[in-house]
Nucleic acid binder design. Sequence first.
DNA 1: GCCCAGGTGGGTA
DNA 2: TACCCACATGGG
Length: 226
Amino acid sequence: MGGDTMAPEKKAELVQKRLLEAFGEPQWRPHLDPISELVSTILSQNTNDTNRDTAFDRLRDRFSSWEEVRDGDVDEVIDAIRPAGLANQKGPRIQGALHFITQERGELDLEFLADWPVDKSKAWLSSIKGVGPKTAAIVLLFALGTPAFPVDTHVHRVAKRLGLIGSKTSREKAHDELEGLIPPEDYYSFHLNLIRHGREVCTSRSPHCEECVLRDLCDYYRKISS
DNA sequence: GCCCAGGTGGGTA
DNA sequence: TACCCACATGGG
């Protein structure tokens, strides 16, 4: 109670605690190298994990390296990634990103970003067409272990309902707001558990089920129950 | 058929 | 700056 008067930092701390109790500490999954993570994340945009993985595997099957994807026929790339949807956009964007990195760095590698300030890395990645704040943050957090907090549709929806961010805060702004609410060492677990919560508990279809451990903190719940 | 899925860039006011 | 929209495939 009093969730609406609680300071956002305090509420975020409580949410993190409850999520850890409910789901545990997420395992650090064996992540992809940064280039593969970037391609995989572009493929994942506005689609589901199954379609992303199918498209990613097809791409790896048809090309033996990212250099070949970069220099290959765009129609072949598009055809390979068709299962992910939006292939006509994602194909050229993937090739464009690989070209951009090569031109800027002289090679197809992103490890150098681990030594850059996070904000600079974000800006650099976001300057690539097809790479927005979410994709940039995923590459930085998952593949490079850099403290960036990715905001996807689940994180955005749940964070708004909890009042961690304003009800009209855009997804883009939510990145900065949420990064200020939690310690960087919590980004990984908070991100994954918030998404798990958004997928399995407070989904867009069943926004407030009985077993939600965050009910008393949820502005949306208070709204619909008053 | 309809809705949703770990977004982004371009256009418009 | 802040909305609005096209983009496209697969599963429930």
